[in-house]
Structures are given as C-alpha cells and as structure tokens.
Amino acid sequence: MLEVRHLVKHFGGLYAVDDVSFTVKTGTITGLIGPNGAGKTTLFHTIAGGYRPDRGEVFLGPKRISGLPPHRIFQLGLVRTFQIPKPFREMTVLENLMVAAPGQLGERFWSAWVAGRRVRRQEREIRERAVQVMEFLNLGRVAQELAKNLSGGQQKLVEIGRALMSDPQCILLDEPGAGVNPSLLVEIVDRIAELNSRGITFLLIEHNMDVVMNLCDPVLVMAQGRLLLEGPPDLVRSDSRVLDAYLGGTPA
C-alpha cells in the first residue's frame, strides 16, 4: 500500500528523518512509536507532500508520490491528520467536514451558474455524508458550532472526520489520542478498528502504549530520525532497544 524508500529530510544539519525505509501493508493498522523529537511528525509531513524529501522515494500502491504537492497526494487516496489539530476555525464543524469532500462540482466557480441543480444535489449528498460521519464520531451535537469553540479532543475528531469524508485508501493519524479524555479515546480506538475492518489502511503515531498494543500490528519504532526496528507489538514491547530509546540512550 504505502512504501517508503530511503527517505531523508533534514533541517540544516538536523536530520529529522534519516534514511528511513518501510512498507505499510494493505489492510493493516501499522503503529509508529518513538520518543519526542524522533522525527515521526516530520516523516508524516514528508510522506504527505508537506515537505519535499531531500532524498528517497514514497510509493502509494504502484504510484510514486514523493515530490507531488499535498493536494495531489490527497487526490490519490492518502489522507493525514495533524498532531496539533488544524481545524478551519471560522467554519462550523459541518462545514469543516463538507469542505473536505473530494470531487465537488461546485468547486468550479462557474458551476454556480451552469450546473446549479447538480451542485445542489451533490451538496445534499455531501451533507448527508457529513451528518453520518458526525454521528459516527459523536460530533452531531456540535455540528453548527464554530470549530474554534471546540475542545482539543473534539478538534481531533473533526480532523478524523474530515479524513473520512473522502474514501481514502490510507490514513495517517498523528497522535489521535493525545489530549483526548479516556472515554473519548476508547471511542476513537473503536472507530479506527471499525474503519480498518471496512478496508482502510492506517499508519498511526501514538504514545499511549495500550492503544498501540491493542490496535497496531506491526509496530515501527523511530529514534533520532532513524527506523530502529519493526515487528509485532509484543516483540517491540520486550525489545531493550526501544526502552533505551525512550530513556534517551543512543540506539546501539
């Protein structure tokens, strides 16, 4: 599904992503863990087109996506969320979701005139879909609230909701559980599992080990820009190198 080959991204002398290669198999929920500053978010950003890689390649299925701008990568079926939520603050939750729907006829400025009927019909469909997604994520109550008035946890849900408005093949989630209260977290975990059972592949950054152990297989471990190891959750949990990395030791 997603293949990363020798990816490098550096900021001046700091190699935030340093020669990272891995494959995310179709249908999996692949976990990505590592201490703060390991380069996980930068890796996501580079995969999704936010940064241009300094070296290496990324493939989505057979298609090379490295070097493409983010909006093209989205259109090819890869969506990502942000560690720090980026809602459209002055738009309602409903609008946040509706704007995320792909292939909208009405996004051509002239279609307001030449295809009014079809645009309206499509708007109805998109709204229905948005309502479904909001129900699925328990956002229905705040549908008409401006996104800037939501709690951090709800903003995370809006991020996920926007990702679900398209039919992505693959979703990259950056710490969906951070700053979310425990009951909401259970909810999110359930949703991810359910979506996965419907065929969406996930790559998931998460610090909460329970979540990772329950949800992810395999798990990738990053430290200091490098991929430390990859394996099933039990193995990763018991590997001493992982503990060292979290304790700040340099990888052997």
């Binding site: 701008p69 980026k86 459209f88 002055e90 995320a100 926007r162």
Partner: peptide, 11 residues
Amino acid sequence: EDETAASSLGK
C-alpha cells in the same frame, strides 16, 4: 483559515 490543512484535503 489554514492553508496547510486545506492542501492536505486536496485543495
């Protein structure tokens, strides 16, 4: 409101 988020949603 947020160019980065909008681009990541295909705009």
